[in-house]
Simulated scan of single mutants.
Amino acid sequence: MERQPLFDNAKFAAVALVVCAHTWMPLLAADRVVGAVVLTVAAFAMPVFITLCGYFAQPRPGRPQVDGARLIAQLVVPYLVFQVLYNVVGMVLERKLGPIPLLEPRWLTWFLLSLLLWRLSVPLWTALRHPLPVAVLIALGSGALHAFPAELALGRTLGFLPWFVLGLVLRPRHFELLRRLAVRRLAPFGLLLTFAAVWAAHPYLLDAGWLEYTGTAAQLGVGYPVWLTVRIALGLLSLLAAASFLAVLPAGRLRWTSLGAASLYVYLLHGLPLKALQASGVYHARVLRHAWTALPLYGAFALGLAVLLALPPSVRLLRPLVQPPVERLLRQPGVLHREA
């Protein structure tokens, strides 16, 4: 499949915003505007990223629906590498030794484990006549559980599932609709409406737990009907924001378009610098705890970090971590040269 600039633009822009949100997250409660910006970005950045993962996981002629070699090389082995790495770094920062649970994702590794489970389930979704409503019902029903276990990132795996399935059912004509002039003119208002709704709800009715998909109704301390209502409202708001975000993005090739091919590098590797930044104590500086200083300064740091991690020299240097050499484990190592 020929690379399309729009998708590379979307992948890098989405992952760069994820880095921004994670960089701003420690200040969520310090300033209401910062909190609203963080939660607005959280409402659509990961959904867009996951939807694109689903779109590129669509079955293609001459390629199996579940390619075991690709999953091992691109998800299983990197998950194990970063699960160990993040647990070791966590033990050092916390000065506390302990076992490394392989099925309880640490920090950012939940995405690799969830993506593995979603990719394995592709044949199930492609066999259904209406896969998206089924995925939505599963996600909405998950809130009735007493609690999400730590294993398999179950909360996020089920909560974000509709976005992956949405990617599976999307076709090029759907993205073409977002490129229409009328849609592109209205798109900024969609993002503004999302921000206004989040600002009105935060911090009284909305916190990060709702948008990170980590809590059932019981874990969030609300009744299931309330959880269901909020989850549906957030889902519709996230869909509006995600569509608006894709509509405002340029579809042509830009100077940073090529960085989209390294979006997974940015996602997996940005956690280590952020943990170091948090450990430095800089977040305690009073001057950096206001919207007019925190948003531009930490935002510039986050964007710079995203660009740095996506540059070709960084990719070459860090490839052994993100794409470990596992050819000897595979029967068909040639599949590793195809795009994920």
Results as ranks from 00 to 15, higher is better:
298 Y>H: 06
175 F>Q: 07
287 V>H: 04
195 F>L: 15
275 K>T: 10
261 A>P: 03
188 P>D: 02
263 S>N: 10
239 L>E: 12
234 L>K: 04
232 I>N: 07
288 L>D: 01
236 L>E: 09
257 T>F: 00
280 S>E: 10
184 R>Y: 05
235 G>P: 02
293 T>K: 01
212 E>L: 12
218 A>P: 01
200 A>V: 14
184 R>G: 04
273 P>Y: 03
250 P>F: 11
292 W>P: 00
227 W>T: 01
240 L>H: 05
200 A>I: 09
226 V>L: 03
292 W>E: 05
299 G>H: 01
276 A>M: 15
201 A>R: 06
224 Y>C: 06
255 R>M: 07
192 L>T: 08
263 S>M: 10
261 A>Y: 01
246 L>E: 11
207 D>L: 12
200 A>E: 11
201 A>Y: 03
217 A>P: 05
194 T>Q: 11
197 A>N: 05
290 H>C: 03
277 L>P: 01
199 W>A: 15
209 G>D: 08
277 L>G: 10
291 A>P: 02
260 G>D: 03
284 H>Q: 15
251 A>D: 14
181 L>F: 07
252 G>H: 14
259 L>T: 03
173 R>S: 11
232 I>W: 12
207 D>Q: 10
281 G>E: 11
202 H>R: 07
277 L>N: 00
280 S>Q: 10
249 L>F: 09
208 A>P: 03
293 T>I: 09
264 L>Q: 15
230 V>M: 08
290 H>W: 05
274 L>V: 04
214 T>G: 07
174 H>Q: 07
233 A>W: 06
244 S>V: 03
270 H>S: 11
265 Y>D: 12
241 A>I: 05
243 A>D: 06
258 S>E: 14
235 G>D: 06
226 V>F: 02
284 H>C: 05
260 G>T: 12
256 W>I: 11
244 S>W: 07
178 L>I: 06
257 T>P: 03
299 G>L: 06
176 E>Q: 12
284 H>R: 15
208 A>L: 11
282 V>A: 15
171 R>H: 15
224 Y>F: 13
288 L>H: 00
186 L>I: 11
286 R>F: 03
198 V>T: 07
252 G>Y: 05
197 A>L: 15
288 L>S: 01
228 L>I: 08
273 P>A: 07
240 L>T: 06
277 L>F: 13
296 P>V: 08
279 A>N: 14
207 D>C: 11
285 A>E: 11
257 T>Q: 02
272 L>V: 15
264 L>D: 01
253 R>W: 09
241 A>E: 02
199 W>K: 13
238 S>V: 09
256 W>C: 05
193 L>S: 04
297 L>A: 08
228 L>F: 13
288 L>V: 05
229 T>C: 14
269 L>N: 06
252 G>D: 10
189 F>A: 15
213 Y>D: 06
275 K>S: 13
175 F>P: 04
250 P>L: 09
252 G>R: 15
222 V>Q: 08
263 S>C: 14
239 L>Y: 07
181 L>H: 14
264 L>E: 13
195 F>K: 10
221 G>V: 13
198 V>A: 09
262 A>G: 09
192 L>C: 14
265 Y>M: 02
299 G>R: 08
